[in-house]
Write a protein that binds this DNA or RNA. Sequence first.
DNA 1: ATTCCAATGTTGACACTGGTAACTTTCCGG
DNA 2: CCGGAAAGTTACCAGTGTCAACATTGGAAT
Lengths: 202, 202
Amino acid sequence: MKSAFHHGDLADGLLQAASSLIAERASSEFSLRELALSLGVSHAAAYRHFRDKRALLGELATRGFIALDEALATAANGAGPTAPERLTAMTLAYIDFACANAGAYRILFHPDLCERGDFPALTQAAMAAFARLEQEVAAGQATGSLKAELPAAIIASALWSAVHGYATLFLDRQIDHDGAAGDRPPADKTVLIKLLIDSVRR
Amino acid sequence: MKSAFHHGDLADGLLQAASSLIAERASSEFSLRELALSLGVSHAAAYRHFRDKRALLGELATRGFIALDEALATAANGAGPTAPERLTAMTLAYIDFACANAGAYRILFHPDLCERGDFPALTQAAMAAFARLEQEVAAGQATGSLKAELPAAIIASALWSAVHGYATLFLDRQIDHDGAAGDRPPADKTVLIKLLIDSVRR
DNA sequence: ATTCCAATGTTGACACTGGTAACTTTCCGG
DNA sequence: CCGGAAAGTTACCAGTGTCAACATTGGAAT
């Protein structure tokens, strides 16, 4: 037992509690005080472990990007060998991850975290997930199954834009892919992905 | 002089002040109190004109969608007659609008406004902007310049997803299309749009 | 074992926020 | 001219992030 007299590992406890909260309410908003209360600890205890609320958000986002990266890796590993197959699986997994973890996904792009450089680990985790996508594109270009006129990074960011847009529009209830709701446009992630992959195929 | 003994038209004044604030700080966050203060009015005066802060946000978002719709209309009108040309102009205008009006664009998708039905005017404005895009797609299908296998609405929402994703990633500083910044992926809106339009072309 | 210290946690405050109730001022229609 | 509705004010409430001052704990050095 390495530490902790009163709680155990409050830093991790806070992160866990925050994860649960944002998962159950599908929103990225919570207060430090309710977090502390739910752990039976005083409202200021968190400040022994995080400089700010932003710092906690940053750590949460870092873990989120790592989880997202793992989901992408799993999808790619479970798919066939060709780049179009693998990219189809990855983009689909991306959208599914976002929809299944609404609160967590929103935190990845929390406005308070958009100043790059404040949280190096976060930047690194985000870049790692992107690099996985970019590398898959580059591999496809090398094999000849994808267009090679454009840099892999530019193609990858175009793919990212599309799936990110779909995910956020869906989470914000601006589009719908379920039953017929007349008050918002219909959408289809399969169609989006098919159009995307076809547009980069050789 | 139609009315207003103390201020003139506080409802509109508040909306204007909010617009200025979010424009200059490129963020969608502001407090009702600073709004009131900047108009030389007490902090509770706003509640004579808006039930909530949400109501003010809703009105702001409604105006934002209308402005966006106008930007799309202008772009389409200034473009050539073929659907690919027009859609290229519209998607480009969409991204430029978002980047030029960061705060306003964020408000369009503010989490507090995602419950559809709370603000009918907002839903209607958002649907009108989407309808303009969808109609352009449908026109292209009718002329034979765009693929006709898929419903126009599904194609339109795919286009929307892509440009929305690009815009939000850019506003959140997750991608960059300016000089070489090593800490975020490079992107190119022109490439994205070209890929998109080619993927729906016949 | 005793002592000391750094890590951890608590209490109480501060400024700020959105929101409400009760009161006052102003204007307009009868 | 006057009464009531509209518009604005003051005073308050609960909740938030944050900080400083204090208390407690456990392990390390003696």
